[in-house]
Nucleic acid binder design. Structure first.
Lengths: 342, 342
DNA sequence: CCCAAAATTCAAAGCGCTTTGGATTTCCTT
DNA sequence: AAGGAAATCCAAAGCGCTTTGAATTTTGGG
């Protein structure tokens, strides 16, 4: 069933039916009713490809998903996607997900936009001097970056959380509690959020006359296993850290296991603060020793970005082009004063 | 830059250029070279919407993602998606993800197909007598179900793991080890995989003259928190279970925590077997007490389903329409003989 | 050197929808 | 009752690509 058939059925022109469906004013109220009625009965659905070709709009937002056999799936990606979904469904948008090996990401983005398949693009997993930003600026397709790059002008639309601030706050608290030996279990070193978190940590330490030793930083994918290994390594140092910052509750899981295994008490022998993306799967308050965290909902970020993207496309509202969200520092039992021995 | 402009630039007709690009035989090798060269220089990309309209093919596979503010994102979804992505990227396919509140899933599927936006559909989160299957069979769009329904003829394309068998094997092992009191921490009760897992467990128990008490079954979303709560509840029964089956390593995480908290030793006081979807984020061998598991890679399932879907669309190969994968039962330290006291 | 067959290339007809520019009716004002 | 504005509705022109049917050029055999 297509427009032509439907209009013949109704004895109307395609023009009128199309207008009736898309809410244009120049159509008789009664006629519109008849059209809507017929649509309900026939189950007619406009062909999106045709619609897209005619309007140039696609009703969808694109994202490229980094993937490869060797790449581990990222819990955080799913959670973020859920947020995008919440908002997208309200406006009948969908996503076009284009998987891509990471090294071809820029090209994949470009292709995705050029294909006319998407009205807007979402960019994540930002790196230093990320080439995707310049590329997107050169096109006229709206886009929003989740995170921010480093080393290039910050004149593009983004939504980021204050990673520097979050880890600064966390490190400062631990320093105030008397801790002297710090460690950081961070995400991949080529991603900007990791870089900022390292910076925030170092800044706080510097203010207290402390430093973060190289062998007390771990960069890796954010999995339980890497968290465990990193912590295990830290604990074997001659002066092991008593204060640990961790970029994800998933990694904290492994870290805590290593701590227990070493026979140490979390919250007294060693303090830990993790960043909490509010993954429903894993809540910091449910840890055996509830975790002190810096918190910011990934899902909320997804919702917000979808909303901004859609607002851009549909021109329905004007939202700020740049947003930097503060994180909450929530103190629970995993942090305590530095053990007196050291 | 579109086809028309490109062909004018080359002094050729659109027809010839189109054919050169799509690998048709009736075009001079030299001409084809010139065309490809020009494409490289101009960066021309065919407009997918137009292509789709003309061919009827979309180059994409659709899936509806259950979502709502109240719904928790599912780790397993992300992992599966990664699998789909691995395979899709090889054939330059992408996904169209249509978020939908669960109660409208059938309608959303129908709309997605009718929109002409997808060449094939992927169905998951199967329920009993799932209406989506009948609906998809009535359309001619290829589809593959991940899982199987219950209570309707099994004459549709699916890929499922042998959930019944997996939990049968697991329960039998525990029974053979002398356990008498069982519990099951399962997924949502309306999903068929949960139903089958319950069935498999009960069957094994029955063969040993045992039963699974109602208050020893927990059905919930598969999160750490629910695992913890369920186990906590079990341990408060007058005769607590000594053998526990668990539908996900994520829930096992919480369950193990509850066990530790109760001062019990996993593997001696209480035995636990979890189903392992091979989530890179959380490996059963890394648990403090490594977990005995039934294993089947979710990501591999995603890859396989994508491959079948694409094979269906492109008619490149003929793959089996129905597949039931056996799971591996891998024994680690979390299982041991029933404690002699009981 | 001529003619049929093979190899290339092209013009034009859609695919299903939106939208422009007009045509036709209806309604109101004077 | 006439004239003009408002309200409705319509025919037709694209959107950018694929594909059919035909035209043109090359090739090969007699």
């Amino acid at each position: 069933m297509n427009l032509k058939q439907l209009s013949q059925l109704l004895g109307l022109s395609q023009t009128t039916v199309s207008r009736a469906l898309n809410g244009y004013p120049e159509v008789n109220a009664e006629t519109r009713q008849r059209v809507l009625e017929a649509v309900r009965e026939t189950g007619y659905r406009p062909n999106r490809a045709a619609q897209r070709l005619a309007t140039g709009r696609a009703g969808s937002i694109g994202l490229v998903m980094p993937t490869a056999d060797s790449i581990e799936s990222d819990v955080h990606f799913g959670e973020f996607l859920a947020g995008l979904g919440d908002e997208a469904v309200k406006h009948d948008f969908h996503f076009v997900i284009n998987p891509s090996p990471p090294e071809e990401e820029t090209a994949t983005c470009r292709r995705l936009v050029a294909s006319g398949n998407v009205d807007a693009l979402f960019l994540a997993y930002m790196r230093e001097k990320d080439p995707r930003i310049a590329m997107m600026k050169s096109l006229k397709t709206p886009f929003v970056v989740h995170g921010r790059s480093i080393g290039i002008p910050t004149d593009y639309p983004y939504l980021d959380i204050d990673n520097t601030g979050a880890f600064y706050d966390a490190a400062r608290l631990l320093a105030q509690l008397g801790h002297r030996h710090f460690a950081l279990i961070n995400g991949p070193d080529y991603l900007t959020f990791s870089i900022r978190r390292t910076k925030g940590t170092m800044r706080a330490l510097a203010e207290h006359g402390l430093t973060l030793r190289d062998d007390c930083i771990s960069n890796s994918q954010m999995t339980d296993e890497h968290g465990f290994r990193a912590m295990e390594r830290f604990l074997q140092l001659e002066t092991p850290p008593t204060a640990v910052l961790c970029s994800s509750t998933v990694m904290a899981l492994g870290a805590v296991r290593a701590i227990n295994q070493a026979g140490l008490k979390l919250g007294s022998d060693i303090s830990l603060i993790a960043h909490d993306d509010v993954l429903p799967m894993l809540k910091p308050e449910n840890f055996m020793v509830p975790l002190t965290t810096t918190r910011s909902s990934l899902r909320a970020a997804g919702q917000r970005i979808a909303r901004r993207l859609i607002a851009d496309i549909l021109q329905i509202e004007t939202l700020p082009q740049q947003e930097l969200w503060k994180t909450d520092l929530i103190v629970r039992a995993s942090t305590g004063p530095a053990p007196s021995g050291k």
